[in-house]
Design a protein around this nucleic acid. Structure first.
Length: 465
RNA sequence: GCCCCCAUCGUCUAGUGGACUAGGAUACUGGCCUCUCACGCCAGAGACACGGGUUCGAAUCCCGUUGGGGGCGCCA
Protein backbone atom coordinates (compact mmCIF):
# COMPACT_ATOMS: atom_id res chain seq x y z
CA UNK A 1 0.00 0.00 0.00
CA UNK A 2 1.34 3.39 -0.94
CA UNK A 3 2.21 6.07 1.57
CA UNK A 4 -0.52 8.13 3.09
CA UNK A 5 -0.24 11.85 2.46
CA UNK A 6 -2.32 14.53 4.17
CA UNK A 7 -2.06 18.26 4.09
CA UNK A 8 -3.12 21.35 5.95
CA UNK A 9 -3.88 24.22 3.59
CA UNK A 10 -4.56 27.44 5.48
CA UNK A 11 -5.09 30.66 3.63
CA UNK A 12 -2.95 33.37 5.16
CA UNK A 13 -5.81 35.79 5.52
CA UNK A 14 -5.94 35.52 9.26
CA UNK A 15 -4.33 33.89 12.25
CA UNK A 16 -4.53 30.20 13.01
CA UNK A 17 -7.62 29.75 15.13
CA UNK A 18 -9.10 26.80 16.99
CA UNK A 19 -11.00 25.38 14.06
CA UNK A 20 -8.01 25.50 11.78
CA UNK A 21 -5.74 24.12 14.44
CA UNK A 22 -8.01 21.16 14.91
CA UNK A 23 -8.09 20.45 11.20
CA UNK A 24 -4.32 20.62 11.18
CA UNK A 25 -4.19 18.32 14.19
CA UNK A 26 -6.44 15.68 12.64
CA UNK A 27 -4.44 15.70 9.43
CA UNK A 28 -1.21 15.52 11.36
CA UNK A 29 -2.44 12.69 13.56
CA UNK A 30 -3.80 10.69 10.68
CA UNK A 31 -0.53 11.00 8.79
CA UNK A 32 1.62 10.18 11.79
CA UNK A 33 -0.55 7.31 12.89
CA UNK A 34 -0.17 5.76 9.48
CA UNK A 35 3.48 6.65 9.12
CA UNK A 36 2.58 8.91 6.26
CA UNK A 37 3.45 12.42 5.28
CA UNK A 38 1.95 15.70 6.42
CA UNK A 39 2.22 18.68 4.10
CA UNK A 40 1.82 22.37 4.86
CA UNK A 41 0.59 24.52 2.03
CA UNK A 42 -0.48 28.14 1.98
CA UNK A 43 -3.43 28.94 -0.22
CA UNK A 44 -2.57 32.51 -0.98
CA UNK A 45 -4.15 33.07 -4.35
CA UNK A 46 -6.27 35.85 -2.94
CA UNK A 47 -3.76 38.62 -3.35
CA UNK A 48 -5.96 41.18 -1.70
CA UNK A 49 -6.31 39.43 1.60
CA UNK A 50 -3.24 37.26 1.95
CA UNK A 51 -0.63 38.69 4.27
CA UNK A 52 2.93 37.74 5.01
CA UNK A 53 2.43 38.29 8.72
CA UNK A 54 -0.28 35.65 8.77
CA UNK A 55 2.03 33.16 7.14
CA UNK A 56 4.49 33.79 9.94
CA UNK A 57 1.94 33.61 12.70
CA UNK A 58 0.38 30.41 11.35
CA UNK A 59 3.80 28.80 11.17
CA UNK A 60 4.61 29.95 14.64
CA UNK A 61 1.36 28.60 15.99
CA UNK A 62 1.80 25.21 14.35
CA UNK A 63 5.30 24.94 15.70
CA UNK A 64 4.18 25.94 19.14
CA UNK A 65 1.57 23.21 19.08
CA UNK A 66 4.17 20.75 17.90
CA UNK A 67 2.37 20.02 14.66
CA UNK A 68 5.45 19.69 12.51
CA UNK A 69 5.08 19.14 8.80
CA UNK A 70 7.19 16.89 6.64
CA UNK A 71 6.97 18.84 3.43
CA UNK A 72 6.44 22.47 2.55
CA UNK A 73 5.41 25.03 3.23
CA UNK A 74 4.26 25.40 -0.33
CA UNK A 75 2.79 28.61 -1.62
CA UNK A 76 0.20 28.60 -4.33
CA UNK A 77 1.35 32.00 -5.42
CA UNK A 78 4.62 30.41 -6.46
CA UNK A 79 3.02 27.62 -8.41
CA UNK A 80 1.14 29.67 -10.95
CA UNK A 81 2.80 28.04 -13.97
CA UNK A 82 1.61 24.66 -12.84
CA UNK A 83 -2.01 25.76 -12.72
CA UNK A 84 -1.64 27.41 -16.09
CA UNK A 85 -0.28 24.26 -17.58
CA UNK A 86 -3.21 22.20 -16.40
CA UNK A 87 -5.60 24.92 -17.42
CA UNK A 88 -4.19 24.95 -20.91
CA UNK A 89 -4.59 21.27 -21.13
CA UNK A 90 -8.25 21.42 -20.17
CA UNK A 91 -8.81 24.24 -22.62
CA UNK A 92 -7.15 22.48 -25.51
CA UNK A 93 -9.09 19.34 -24.79
CA UNK A 94 -12.32 21.28 -24.89
CA UNK A 95 -13.05 20.68 -21.24
CA UNK A 96 -12.87 24.33 -20.38
CA UNK A 97 -13.71 27.53 -22.19
CA UNK A 98 -13.10 31.22 -21.92
CA UNK A 99 -15.77 33.54 -20.71
CA UNK A 100 -16.05 37.27 -21.17
CA UNK A 101 -18.98 37.96 -18.92
CA UNK A 102 -18.32 40.80 -16.54
CA UNK A 103 -18.51 40.46 -12.80
CA UNK A 104 -21.34 42.96 -12.73
CA UNK A 105 -23.42 41.04 -15.20
CA UNK A 106 -22.86 37.83 -13.34
CA UNK A 107 -23.70 39.37 -10.04
CA UNK A 108 -26.95 40.75 -11.40
CA UNK A 109 -27.93 37.39 -12.86
CA UNK A 110 -27.11 35.61 -9.64
CA UNK A 111 -29.29 37.97 -7.69
CA UNK A 112 -32.16 37.53 -10.08
CA UNK A 113 -31.91 33.76 -9.86
CA UNK A 114 -31.83 33.83 -6.12
CA UNK A 115 -34.91 35.98 -6.06
CA UNK A 116 -36.74 33.60 -8.32
CA UNK A 117 -35.95 30.91 -5.82
CA UNK A 118 -33.68 28.87 -8.01
CA UNK A 119 -30.15 27.84 -7.41
CA UNK A 120 -27.76 30.47 -8.75
CA UNK A 121 -25.98 29.17 -11.81
CA UNK A 122 -23.82 30.43 -14.58
CA UNK A 123 -26.18 30.57 -17.53
CA UNK A 124 -23.67 29.40 -20.11
CA UNK A 125 -23.59 32.61 -22.13
CA UNK A 126 -20.06 31.96 -23.33
CA UNK A 127 -20.14 28.20 -23.26
CA UNK A 128 -20.48 27.77 -26.99
CA UNK A 129 -18.80 30.96 -28.15
CA UNK A 130 -15.46 29.29 -28.71
CA UNK A 131 -13.66 32.30 -27.34
CA UNK A 132 -9.86 32.19 -27.43
CA UNK A 133 -7.84 33.27 -24.39
CA UNK A 134 -7.67 37.01 -24.03
CA UNK A 135 -7.36 39.69 -21.46
CA UNK A 136 -10.31 40.05 -19.18
CA UNK A 137 -11.43 36.51 -19.91
CA UNK A 138 -11.81 33.88 -17.27
CA UNK A 139 -11.52 30.17 -17.88
CA UNK A 140 -14.54 28.12 -16.98
CA UNK A 141 -14.89 24.39 -16.73
CA UNK A 142 -17.30 22.85 -19.20
CA UNK A 143 -19.41 20.49 -17.18
CA UNK A 144 -20.45 17.60 -19.43
CA UNK A 145 -24.15 17.58 -20.16
CA UNK A 146 -24.53 13.90 -19.57
CA UNK A 147 -23.79 14.21 -15.86
CA UNK A 148 -26.71 12.76 -13.96
CA UNK A 149 -25.54 12.78 -10.42
CA UNK A 150 -22.29 13.32 -8.57
CA UNK A 151 -21.42 10.80 -5.92
CA UNK A 152 -18.54 10.31 -3.63
CA UNK A 153 -17.75 8.12 -0.69
CA UNK A 154 -16.90 10.14 2.37
CA UNK A 155 -14.65 8.22 4.74
CA UNK A 156 -16.76 9.26 7.69
CA UNK A 157 -20.22 9.69 6.29
CA UNK A 158 -20.44 7.14 3.57
CA UNK A 159 -22.05 7.87 0.25
CA UNK A 160 -22.97 11.46 -0.46
CA UNK A 161 -25.01 12.18 -3.56
CA UNK A 162 -25.55 15.49 -5.29
CA UNK A 163 -28.02 16.23 -8.03
CA UNK A 164 -26.40 17.26 -11.31
CA UNK A 165 -27.50 20.88 -11.12
CA UNK A 166 -25.33 21.22 -8.06
CA UNK A 167 -22.44 22.28 -10.23
CA UNK A 168 -22.35 24.86 -12.96
CA UNK A 169 -19.56 25.94 -15.25
CA UNK A 170 -17.54 27.49 -12.49
CA UNK A 171 -14.35 29.46 -12.94
CA UNK A 172 -10.96 27.75 -12.96
CA UNK A 173 -8.75 30.67 -13.84
CA UNK A 174 -9.66 34.23 -13.02
CA UNK A 175 -9.39 36.88 -15.69
CA UNK A 176 -6.04 37.85 -14.23
CA UNK A 177 -4.78 34.34 -14.81
CA UNK A 178 -4.65 33.23 -11.19
CA UNK A 179 -6.41 30.03 -10.19
CA UNK A 180 -9.51 29.96 -8.05
CA UNK A 181 -9.53 27.95 -4.87
CA UNK A 182 -11.39 25.03 -6.44
CA UNK A 183 -8.87 24.66 -9.20
CA UNK A 184 -5.76 25.24 -7.13
CA UNK A 185 -6.66 22.69 -4.43
CA UNK A 186 -7.27 20.01 -6.97
CA UNK A 187 -4.08 20.63 -8.90
CA UNK A 188 -2.10 20.86 -5.69
CA UNK A 189 -3.54 17.76 -4.11
CA UNK A 190 -2.98 15.92 -7.35
CA UNK A 191 0.59 17.04 -7.93
CA UNK A 192 1.54 16.68 -4.29
CA UNK A 193 0.26 13.16 -4.13
CA UNK A 194 -2.26 13.86 -1.40
CA UNK A 195 -4.14 10.66 -0.63
CA UNK A 196 -6.47 11.84 2.12
CA UNK A 197 -8.22 15.15 2.34
CA UNK A 198 -9.38 15.76 5.88
CA UNK A 199 -11.20 19.07 6.12
CA UNK A 200 -14.16 20.81 7.69
CA UNK A 201 -17.59 19.71 6.57
CA UNK A 202 -18.17 23.18 5.22
CA UNK A 203 -16.28 21.80 2.25
CA UNK A 204 -18.74 19.03 1.52
CA UNK A 205 -20.58 21.15 -0.99
CA UNK A 206 -17.32 22.06 -2.69
CA UNK A 207 -16.46 18.46 -3.26
CA UNK A 208 -18.64 17.87 -6.34
CA UNK A 209 -16.96 20.76 -8.10
CA UNK A 210 -13.57 19.41 -7.31
CA UNK A 211 -14.61 15.97 -8.44
CA UNK A 212 -15.59 17.43 -11.80
CA UNK A 213 -12.08 18.80 -12.17
CA UNK A 214 -10.56 15.44 -11.35
CA UNK A 215 -12.86 13.89 -13.88
CA UNK A 216 -11.97 16.39 -16.59
CA UNK A 217 -8.34 15.68 -15.88
CA UNK A 218 -8.92 11.97 -15.97
CA UNK A 219 -7.35 11.74 -12.54
CA UNK A 220 -8.27 9.69 -9.52
CA UNK A 221 -9.49 11.87 -6.67
CA UNK A 222 -8.13 11.43 -3.15
CA UNK A 223 -10.22 10.07 -0.31
CA UNK A 224 -12.29 12.62 1.51
CA UNK A 225 -13.07 12.80 5.20
CA UNK A 226 -15.21 15.74 6.23
CA UNK A 227 -14.92 16.43 9.90
CA UNK A 228 -17.53 18.44 11.78
CA UNK A 229 -16.90 22.09 12.33
CA UNK A 230 -16.07 23.74 15.61
CA UNK A 231 -18.76 26.17 16.66
CA UNK A 232 -18.71 28.92 19.23
CA UNK A 233 -20.14 28.33 22.72
CA UNK A 234 -23.45 29.71 21.49
CA UNK A 235 -23.67 27.25 18.64
CA UNK A 236 -23.03 29.86 16.01
CA UNK A 237 -20.10 29.85 13.72
CA UNK A 238 -16.81 30.54 15.43
CA UNK A 239 -16.17 34.24 15.33
CA UNK A 240 -13.82 36.78 16.79
CA UNK A 241 -16.02 36.89 19.83
CA UNK A 242 -15.30 33.36 20.94
CA UNK A 243 -12.72 30.95 19.66
CA UNK A 244 -11.66 32.56 16.45
CA UNK A 245 -8.92 34.22 18.36
CA UNK A 246 -5.46 33.25 17.35
CA UNK A 247 -3.97 30.14 18.87
CA UNK A 248 -1.07 32.35 19.83
CA UNK A 249 -3.35 34.37 22.04
CA UNK A 250 -3.90 31.30 24.14
CA UNK A 251 -0.17 30.97 24.49
CA UNK A 252 -0.10 34.58 25.67
CA UNK A 253 -2.77 33.82 28.23
CA UNK A 254 -0.79 31.02 29.72
CA UNK A 255 -2.07 27.91 28.03
CA UNK A 256 0.16 24.92 27.45
CA UNK A 257 0.29 23.52 23.93
CA UNK A 258 -0.37 20.10 25.42
CA UNK A 259 -3.64 21.32 26.87
CA UNK A 260 -4.81 23.03 23.71
CA UNK A 261 -3.95 19.97 21.66
CA UNK A 262 -5.63 17.61 24.08
CA UNK A 263 -8.75 19.72 24.20
CA UNK A 264 -8.90 20.10 20.43
CA UNK A 265 -8.46 16.39 19.92
CA UNK A 266 -11.43 15.72 22.17
CA UNK A 267 -13.58 18.06 20.15
CA UNK A 268 -15.18 15.65 17.75
CA UNK A 269 -13.13 12.67 18.67
CA UNK A 270 -13.29 10.26 21.57
CA UNK A 271 -11.49 7.20 22.74
CA UNK A 272 -13.63 5.34 25.22
CA UNK A 273 -13.74 7.13 28.54
CA UNK A 274 -10.22 8.49 28.29
CA UNK A 275 -9.97 12.25 28.54
CA UNK A 276 -6.30 13.04 28.74
CA UNK A 277 -3.85 12.33 25.97
CA UNK A 278 -0.42 13.57 25.14
CA UNK A 279 0.66 13.94 21.53
CA UNK A 280 2.33 10.59 21.42
CA UNK A 281 -0.78 8.88 22.68
CA UNK A 282 -2.94 10.77 20.24
CA UNK A 283 -0.80 9.56 17.39
CA UNK A 284 -1.10 6.02 18.65
CA UNK A 285 -4.81 6.10 19.21
CA UNK A 286 -6.17 8.42 16.59
CA UNK A 287 -8.25 7.02 13.84
CA UNK A 288 -10.91 8.44 11.62
CA UNK A 289 -13.54 5.89 12.57
CA UNK A 290 -13.84 7.42 16.02
CA UNK A 291 -14.46 10.91 14.75
CA UNK A 292 -17.88 12.28 15.59
CA UNK A 293 -20.14 13.61 12.89
CA UNK A 294 -21.95 16.41 14.65
CA UNK A 295 -20.56 19.87 15.07
CA UNK A 296 -18.85 20.55 18.40
CA UNK A 297 -19.10 23.69 20.45
CA UNK A 298 -16.00 25.25 21.81
CA UNK A 299 -16.18 25.37 25.61
CA UNK A 300 -13.56 27.73 27.05
CA UNK A 301 -14.13 26.41 30.56
CA UNK A 302 -13.31 22.89 29.64
CA UNK A 303 -10.19 23.94 27.82
CA UNK A 304 -9.18 25.83 30.96
CA UNK A 305 -9.74 22.70 33.00
CA UNK A 306 -7.53 20.75 30.62
CA UNK A 307 -4.87 23.38 31.02
CA UNK A 308 -5.06 23.09 34.80
CA UNK A 309 -4.75 19.34 34.47
CA UNK A 310 -1.64 19.51 32.33
CA UNK A 311 -0.04 22.14 34.51
CA UNK A 312 -0.33 19.95 37.56
CA UNK A 313 0.58 16.79 35.70
CA UNK A 314 3.59 17.72 33.61
CA UNK A 315 7.13 17.70 34.98
CA UNK A 316 8.23 20.96 36.48
CA UNK A 317 11.05 21.20 34.01
CA UNK A 318 8.56 21.09 31.16
CA UNK A 319 6.33 23.60 32.88
CA UNK A 320 9.27 25.88 33.56
CA UNK A 321 10.18 25.92 29.90
CA UNK A 322 6.77 27.31 29.04
CA UNK A 323 6.58 29.51 32.10
CA UNK A 324 9.77 31.46 31.55
CA UNK A 325 8.29 34.03 29.17
CA UNK A 326 5.88 34.95 31.94
CA UNK A 327 8.70 35.53 34.36
CA UNK A 328 10.21 38.44 32.46
CA UNK A 329 9.50 41.00 35.16
CA UNK A 330 11.25 38.98 37.83
CA UNK A 331 15.00 38.67 38.40
CA UNK A 332 15.03 34.96 37.72
CA UNK A 333 18.68 34.95 36.79
CA UNK A 334 19.34 35.06 40.50
CA UNK A 335 17.84 31.64 40.98
CA UNK A 336 18.98 28.25 39.89
CA UNK A 337 16.96 26.09 37.57
CA UNK A 338 16.59 23.63 40.43
CA UNK A 339 15.22 26.25 42.75
CA UNK A 340 12.70 27.42 40.18
CA UNK A 341 11.52 23.88 39.64
CA UNK A 342 11.19 23.32 43.37
CA UNK A 343 8.97 26.31 43.93
CA UNK A 344 6.68 25.25 41.09
CA UNK A 345 5.69 22.06 42.85
CA UNK A 346 3.49 23.82 45.35
CA UNK A 347 1.73 26.04 42.86
CA UNK A 348 1.07 23.51 40.13
CA UNK A 349 -2.22 22.23 41.56
CA UNK A 350 -3.32 25.74 42.44
CA UNK A 351 -3.42 27.49 39.10
CA UNK A 352 -5.17 27.12 35.80
CA UNK A 353 -2.81 29.10 33.60
CA UNK A 354 0.87 29.91 33.44
CA UNK A 355 -0.02 33.52 33.85
CA UNK A 356 -1.64 32.76 37.20
CA UNK A 357 1.33 30.67 38.05
CA UNK A 358 3.74 33.52 37.47
CA UNK A 359 1.64 35.72 39.71
CA UNK A 360 1.45 33.15 42.43
CA UNK A 361 5.19 32.65 42.72
CA UNK A 362 6.13 36.33 42.70
CA UNK A 363 6.97 36.33 46.41
CA UNK A 364 9.61 33.69 45.82
CA UNK A 365 11.34 35.77 43.19
CA UNK A 366 10.99 39.35 44.31
CA UNK A 367 13.32 40.81 46.88
CA UNK A 368 10.65 43.09 48.25
CA UNK A 369 7.10 41.94 48.37
CA UNK A 370 4.03 44.02 48.60
CA UNK A 371 1.47 43.14 51.23
CA UNK A 372 -2.06 42.92 50.00
CA UNK A 373 -4.11 45.70 51.61
CA UNK A 374 -7.01 43.66 52.85
CA UNK A 375 -4.80 40.77 53.87
CA UNK A 376 -2.58 42.79 56.11
CA UNK A 377 -5.47 44.64 57.72
CA UNK A 378 -7.16 41.39 58.52
CA UNK A 379 -4.30 39.19 59.66
CA UNK A 380 -1.41 41.40 60.76
CA UNK A 381 -3.09 42.59 63.93
CA UNK A 382 -1.72 43.65 67.30
CA UNK A 383 -3.13 40.44 68.67
CA UNK A 384 -0.59 38.44 66.73
CA UNK A 385 2.28 40.80 67.38
CA UNK A 386 3.92 39.08 70.31
CA UNK A 387 3.71 35.76 68.53
CA UNK A 388 5.57 37.09 65.55
CA UNK A 389 8.20 38.58 67.81
CA UNK A 390 8.60 35.28 69.51
CA UNK A 391 8.90 33.58 66.14
CA UNK A 392 11.71 35.83 65.06
CA UNK A 393 13.60 35.07 68.21
CA UNK A 394 13.06 31.35 67.74
CA UNK A 395 14.01 31.39 64.10
CA UNK A 396 17.44 29.84 64.62
CA UNK A 397 15.98 26.82 66.35
CA UNK A 398 13.46 26.03 63.61
CA UNK A 399 13.89 23.13 61.21
CA UNK A 400 14.07 24.92 57.91
CA UNK A 401 14.97 21.77 56.04
CA UNK A 402 12.02 19.74 57.11
CA UNK A 403 8.43 20.71 56.42
CA UNK A 404 7.02 18.14 58.80
CA UNK A 405 9.12 19.25 61.75
CA UNK A 406 8.50 22.84 60.90
CA UNK A 407 4.81 22.19 61.16
CA UNK A 408 5.20 20.51 64.53
CA UNK A 409 7.23 23.40 65.78
CA UNK A 410 4.58 25.83 64.65
CA UNK A 411 1.87 23.79 66.25
CA UNK A 412 3.76 23.77 69.51
CA UNK A 413 4.29 27.49 69.34
CA UNK A 414 0.63 28.15 68.63
CA UNK A 415 -0.53 25.90 71.40
CA UNK A 416 1.83 27.44 73.88
CA UNK A 417 0.48 30.87 73.07
CA UNK A 418 -3.12 29.79 73.08
CA UNK A 419 -3.58 30.61 69.42
CA UNK A 420 -4.99 28.41 66.73
CA UNK A 421 -2.47 27.24 64.19
CA UNK A 422 -4.90 28.55 61.62
CA UNK A 423 -4.52 32.12 62.83
CA UNK A 424 -0.81 31.95 63.25
CA UNK A 425 -0.45 30.41 59.83
CA UNK A 426 -2.50 33.05 58.10
CA UNK A 427 -0.55 35.86 59.72
CA UNK A 428 2.76 34.32 58.74
CA UNK A 429 1.49 33.55 55.28
CA UNK A 430 0.57 37.18 54.74
CA UNK A 431 3.91 38.29 56.12
CA UNK A 432 5.85 35.98 53.85
CA UNK A 433 3.84 35.99 50.66
CA UNK A 434 1.82 39.18 50.94
CA UNK A 435 -1.32 37.19 50.22
CA UNK A 436 -3.91 35.07 51.97
CA UNK A 437 -3.59 32.39 49.34
CA UNK A 438 -0.35 30.58 48.78
CA UNK A 439 1.26 27.18 48.52
CA UNK A 440 1.42 25.27 51.82
CA UNK A 441 2.98 27.50 54.44
CA UNK A 442 5.74 25.21 55.59
CA UNK A 443 6.80 24.57 52.06
CA UNK A 444 6.94 28.31 51.59
CA UNK A 445 9.06 28.77 54.70
CA UNK A 446 11.41 26.05 53.65
CA UNK A 447 11.81 27.39 50.13
CA UNK A 448 12.18 30.95 51.25
CA UNK A 449 14.95 30.17 53.71
CA UNK A 450 15.67 31.58 57.10
CA UNK A 451 17.03 34.97 56.13
CA UNK A 452 14.21 35.97 53.84
CA UNK A 453 11.72 34.75 56.43
CA UNK A 454 13.40 36.86 59.08
CA UNK A 455 13.35 39.97 56.95
CA UNK A 456 9.72 39.57 55.99
CA UNK A 457 8.56 38.86 59.53
CA UNK A 458 10.29 42.01 60.67
CA UNK A 459 8.63 43.96 57.90
CA UNK A 460 5.29 42.64 59.04
CA UNK A 461 5.99 43.69 62.60
CA UNK A 462 6.88 47.15 61.39
CA UNK A 463 3.50 47.31 59.77
CA UNK A 464 1.71 46.28 62.95
CA UNK A 465 3.56 48.98 64.85
C1' G B 1 -35.36 29.72 -2.18
C1' C B 2 -32.47 25.23 -3.61
C1' C B 3 -28.76 21.53 -2.18
C1' C B 4 -25.78 18.99 1.53
C1' C B 5 -24.48 17.48 6.56
C1' C B 6 -25.85 16.57 11.61
C1' A B 7 -28.97 15.25 16.26
C1' U B 8 -27.11 11.17 23.89
C1' C B 9 -26.80 15.42 30.42
C1' G B 10 -25.65 23.03 29.83
C1' U B 11 -20.98 21.60 27.09
C1' C B 12 -17.41 17.62 25.15
C1' U B 13 -18.31 12.62 24.71
C1' A B 14 -18.89 6.59 25.66
C1' G B 15 -22.43 3.62 23.32
C1' U B 16 -21.91 0.26 16.63
C1' G B 17 -29.77 -4.26 18.25
C1' G B 18 -30.08 -7.40 24.25
C1' A B 19 -24.38 -6.43 29.22
C1' C B 20 -28.36 0.66 29.73
C1' U B 21 -31.39 1.50 36.31
C1' A B 22 -27.69 5.12 29.52
C1' G B 23 -21.06 5.42 31.47
C1' G B 24 -16.96 9.25 31.72
C1' A B 25 -15.22 14.43 31.57
C1' U B 26 -16.30 19.53 32.45
C1' A B 27 -19.38 23.01 34.82
C1' C B 28 -22.88 23.10 39.13
C1' U B 29 -24.48 21.49 44.41
C1' G B 30 -23.36 19.00 49.18
C1' G B 31 -19.68 16.48 52.15
C1' C B 32 -14.62 14.71 53.50
C1' C B 33 -9.39 16.22 53.71
C1' U B 34 -7.01 20.85 55.62
C1' C B 35 -2.26 26.11 57.80
C1' U B 36 -5.01 29.45 53.15
C1' C B 37 -6.49 28.41 48.33
C1' A B 38 -6.38 24.63 45.32
C1' C B 39 -5.63 19.47 44.25
C1' G B 40 -7.71 14.84 45.65
C1' C B 41 -11.72 11.74 47.38
C1' C B 42 -17.11 10.66 48.15
C1' A B 43 -22.11 11.87 46.98
C1' G B 44 -26.05 14.54 44.22
C1' A B 45 -28.67 16.75 40.32
C1' G B 46 -28.57 16.49 34.94
C1' A B 47 -29.49 13.58 28.36
C1' C B 48 -31.06 9.34 24.17
C1' A B 49 -35.40 16.13 20.06
C1' C B 50 -40.43 14.34 18.38
C1' G B 51 -43.65 10.91 15.58
C1' G B 52 -44.09 6.63 12.90
C1' G B 53 -42.19 2.01 11.42
C1' U B 54 -38.55 -2.72 11.29
C1' U B 55 -37.60 -6.39 15.27
C1' C B 56 -39.02 -11.11 20.27
C1' G B 57 -36.10 -6.63 21.63
C1' A B 58 -34.16 -0.25 19.88
C1' A B 59 -30.07 5.46 22.14
C1' U B 60 -28.39 2.02 18.35
C1' C B 61 -31.66 0.25 11.73
C1' C B 62 -35.48 2.86 8.14
C1' C B 63 -38.92 7.03 7.02
C1' G B 64 -40.98 11.69 8.28
C1' U B 65 -41.18 16.18 11.36
C1' U B 66 -38.61 19.64 14.07
C1' G B 67 -34.15 21.85 15.33
C1' G B 68 -28.96 23.16 14.43
C1' G B 69 -24.89 23.78 10.99
C1' G B 70 -22.86 24.41 6.10
C1' G B 71 -22.87 25.56 0.80
C1' C B 72 -24.98 28.01 -3.55
C1' G B 73 -18.42 33.89 -5.62
C1' C B 74 -13.35 35.85 -10.88
C1' C B 75 -13.25 34.17 -1.22
C1' A B 76 -10.86 30.14 0.74
Amino acid sequence: MSEIVTRFPPSPTGHLHLGGARTALFNFLFARHNRGKFILRFEDTDKERSKEEYVDSIIEALNWLGLHWDEGPYFQSKRLEIYEEYAKRLYSEGKAYYCECSKEELEAKRKAQLERGIKPHYDGTCREKGLPPGSGRALRIKIPEEITEIVFEDLLRGKIVFPPDEVDDFILLRSDGTPTYQFAVVIDDLTMGVTHVIRGDDHISNTPKQLMIYQALGAKPPQFAHIPMVLGPDGARLSKRHGARSILEYREEGYLPQAVLNYLARLGWGYGDQEYFNLKELIEKFDLSRVNLSPARFDPEKMLAFNAYWIKTLDSSEILKHLKPFLKSYPIEKYSEEYLKTILEGVKPRVKTLKEMAEMIDFYLLEEIELDEKAKEKYLTPKIKSLLERLIIDLDSLSFDDEKKLEEEFRALAEESGVKLKDLAQAVRVALTGKTISPPLFEVIKNLGKERVRIRLKKALEFIN
